[in-house]
Design a protein around this nucleic acid. Structure first.
Lengths: 184, 184
DNA sequence: GAAGATTGAAGACTCAATCTTA
DNA sequence: TAAGATTGAGTCTTCAATCTTC
């Protein structure tokens, strides 16, 4: 796309010039990315108030959830960092807050003294149990329940495919790609 | 789910107790939400470096993109806030940064003296044109190109459906739900 | 009084540097 | 030397309060 309207600054010609350039950004692939973003952010916005009622921020909820799905209700700091979208520094601070709130505690890792576990406390388990039912209801209302069974399965299959390619390290700390080890 | 393992604190019984509780959080609907989150965050991570090469953060890119798709390359502050996931305060500061960088300017709104337009400068247009091609390539590589044509259309159709329900105000400032007015 | 936009104060996250252990 | 985790400094975002205009 070449720029051939040097006098865009003047008001009357501005709109026409903008139209010429808009083609670039109107690319359908950018729109697709925008859809993913809007759906994700929209869903977060829908679930935010219910989490807030329980005093839990979305990132905190994700950490609590990952811990609750792991053997012993605990995971190493570095594994939490790998599984979430936070850096190891961010995990340190988030775990600080949750520990301050009594939802988890740090425990030593016997096999490697550099490592630390974040481990759910009884209070942490109770909090998860208190939050999850309402949370599931909202996901049902704004995501799952809006799709026909066939459409839903196709949608989830595509998401899984994309996730596996785009986020290879998402299962660090678990023995297998589907948490199968937690049942052994 | 009832809690019947009061001695969870002691190491040996911890794992079994965790298993009993894990059922709650293993709900498939929570997993679905997690997939959306992982795909979105994974895609952001893939596109981040290329945006950074051009000195643009994701939120800034989204604002520049929305402006470039709007008539005259401009949008009111309040419309930007409605279209993005930022508050009006957040938009004020983000526009501050972009204005400081010379990518846009604030201009007065003739019909309502409370309002302000954020309007792309020539530098802003140039930046968008410089960033978009590489950005599109990455979306192609990590999202669009990974799906068969049929799967892709189905996926996008589902996303559109969800977006329309979950984010009703996403088109504030545009005349129609698909930016049709920009072509008049 | 309400809406559009901005500001001060505070929270959350990242980067780079640091400390400890492998 | 490298890996796990933390800390200080700086950036980005929000909330609540404020100012201007409707």
């Amino acid at each position: 796309v070449t720029r051939n309207a040097p006098a865009r600054e003047t008001a009357p010609t501005g709109v026409a010039a903008a139209d010429a350039h808009a083609e670039l950004a109107a690319d359908s692939r950018i729109t697709a990315m925008g859809l993913v973003s809007e759906v994700y952010n929209g869903l977060v916005a829908k679930t935010l108030p219910q989490l807030a009622e329980h005093g839990v921020a979305p990132a905190e909820f994700e950490v609590l959830l990952r811990l609750s799905r792991s053997a012993g209700g605990r995971l190493r700091m570095s594994d939490l960092a790998a599984q979430t979208s936070l850096t190891s520094s961010g995990i340190t601070r988030l775990v600080d807050r949750l520990e301050r709130g009594g939802l988890l505690r740090r425990t030593a890792c016997p096999s490697d003294r550099r490592g630390l576990f974040a481990e759910l406390t009884d209070t942490g388990w109770e909090r998860i149990e208190a939050v999850v039912p309402g949370h599931v209801e909202l996901i049902d209302q704004w995501l799952i329940g809006l799709l026909e069974p066939g459409e839903r399965e196709q949608f989830l299959a595509t998401l899984r495919k994309l996730r596996d390619i785009v986020r290879p390290g998402a299962t660090a700390g678990a023995a297998g790609p589907t948490d199968a080890a937690a049942h052994g």
